[in-house]
Design a binder for these strands. Structure first.
Length: 445
RNA sequence: CGGGGCGUGGCGCAGCCUGGUAGCGCGCUGGUUUUGGGUACCAGAGGCCGCGAGUUCGAAUCUCGCCGCCCCGACCA
């Protein structure tokens, strides 16, 4: 994309309402614009990141054998009356009446809807196991939305639901989700730690939250430093292999890691002091096993091998996709702006033409631009009539991990400069070598 | 929901106390200049001062009501 043909309304000054880094930077980098309290429009740059995260979530879910579908944002109240949650959910649920005075609601989650779909289509144990998920906008009428997309009222979430015949099968689904989530966050360049947590309105006693460590997180967390050393890497995982999956879960859940709700000071004190960490975290996902909590009241039953009708064992699992954009920035920024991990960056590299209008610089910039695209990469070429300082400042702000600088000084010796946003380190390379380097960096991402 | 604060060109703010033709910086437009970390200068454009009522000869400014937004707290798959 050429910047003069894009829509990137960056702000030089920080809007007064933004308190935390991710909110400030998302507004300044032209990623979002507030539409109402806790409700945001996603401008092109922000939308690109959001879609990239969606894509990673889709890939990892499907790799784990989970099946995508799409349920609506508006739901009929009747289903929620059936589960008993129409009254239980309280003021956080946005209730709407249609023209016929029918009670509707903007879905805060989808257990009821998915259970309804399931029970109308599945009647036999032979159709199990089944895990369905979607990525859809949710609405929760928070008392106090804040921190930009970190605590919005409208937010994009991946929510998935597993249906199994036995508790054992459902626990395997639980484990499968934990492993696929760990891999998902890793691909995004995040360290998200599974922590024992409370059930909340969804319910269930078997539940973990995934927390991204960041000083601005809303949850206090206590953990054994050993857990942050764990890495899944690109090892092959057979999600059907119960032993392999549960071994990974065992490894990740062995070190002490709890949010304050479930904190056990005694167990914490037993950890060697140098490994004890108290910090803050941002909740970016949660997984639950809740058995027959919904299947019983909503009569989601299958016939088992013995010909008996039994309620299915269920679990649900969520990833806060829009919140992740904020969490990524909280975990990856400096005083000049955002620093995107390669896995989620909206553009792979920025091209800064230091002397727009100079024939040699223009030609080399365009040639790099074409070369990167030919290599399957997605560059952002800053072709504005701006001074070098302004272009550098914009690139630093929007946080592309790699920058190619084209200027008369370097071109005199046939070189362009490749700079890492994270380390600030630069090297002078021929244009061909620079393209090759970037291709290598992004290989496999 | 309790407490506090703020609504003035796109953004950041001043003016309000003590009513009298709406200002500053950034950004924007045209031009000159400059060109390896937000250049300097010249000339411009852009505002029902959140909305409504009231007081007054006169309201951004005073009074009342409403709406919106932010912060702290409680709450939070």
């Amino acid at each position: 994309m050429r910047l003069t043909q894009y829509f990137l309304p960056v702000l030089r000054e920080t809007p007064a309402e933004a308190q935390i880094a991710s909110h400030r930077l998302m507004l300044r980098a032209g990623m979002i614009r507030q539409a109402a309290a806790g409700i945001y429009s996603w401008l092109p740059l922000g939308y690109k990141v959001l879609r990239r995260l969606e894509q990673i979530v889709h890939e990892e879910q499907q790799r784990a054998g989970h099946i995508p579908l799409l349920m609506p944002t508006l739901q009929a109240a009747d289903l929620w009356r059936e589960s008993g949650r129409y009254d239980d959910y309280g003021a956080e649920m946005l209730r709407i009446k249609d023209r016929h005075e029918r009670d509707m609601l903007y879905g805060p989650t989808n257990e009821e809807l998915i259970t309804d779909i399931f029970r109308s289509a599945v009647t036999s144990y032979k159709d199990l196991p089944l895990t369905l998920y979607h990525i859809q906008w949710k609405f929760r009428d928070e008392m106090r939305p804040r921190f930009g997309v970190m605590r919005g009222r409208e937010f994009l979430m991946k929510d998935g639901y597993n249906f199994d015949l036995t508790v054992e099968d459902a626990l395997h689904a639980y484990n499968r989700h934990m492993v696929s989530y760990i891999r998902t966050y890793e691909r995004m360049g995040l360290k998200a730690i599974p922590m024992r947590a409370d059930g909340g309105p969804i319910g269930g006693d078997h539940t973990h939250e995934f927390l991204v460590l960041a000083p601005t997180g809303e949850s206090a967390v206590f953990y054994d430093r050993a857990v942050t050393d764990l890495t899944l890497g690109d090892r092959g995982i057979d999600y059907a292999d119960r032993g392999q999956v549960s071994d990974i879960v065992a490894t990740w859940t062995a070190p002490y890691a709890r949010t304050d709700e479930r904190h056990d000071p005694e167990a914490f004190a037993a950890i060697p002091e140098e490994r004890r960490v108290e910090g803050r975290g941002i909740e970016v996902g949660q997984i639950f096993f809740f058995g027959t909590k919904y299947s019983e009241p909503m009569r989601a039953v299958v016939v088992n091998e013995q010909g008996e009708r039994v309620p299915v064992q269920m679990g649900s699992h969520g990833i806060g996709v829009s919140r992740l954009v904020g969490a990524l920035i909280e975990a990856n920024h400096d005083d000049r702006g955002i620093i995107w991990p390669e896995g989620v960056t909206p553009f792979h590299a920025g091209i800064v033409n230091l002397k727009q209008g100079d024939h040699a610089c223009d030609a080399e910039s365009l040639s790099l631009y074409a070369g990167l695209r030919a290599a399957g990469l997605d560059p952002l070429y800053d072709d504005r009539e701006e001074r070098a300082g302004a272009k550098f400042a914009t690139m630093d702000l929007i946080g592309l991990p790699w920058r190619l600088t084209v200027g008369p000084r370097g071109l005199a010796s046939g070189k362009v400069e490749l700079t890492s946003r994270r380390t600030g380190e630069s090297e002078d390379l021929s244009p061909e070598a620079a393209i090759a380097r970037l291709r290598e960096i992004y290989a496999g991402i």
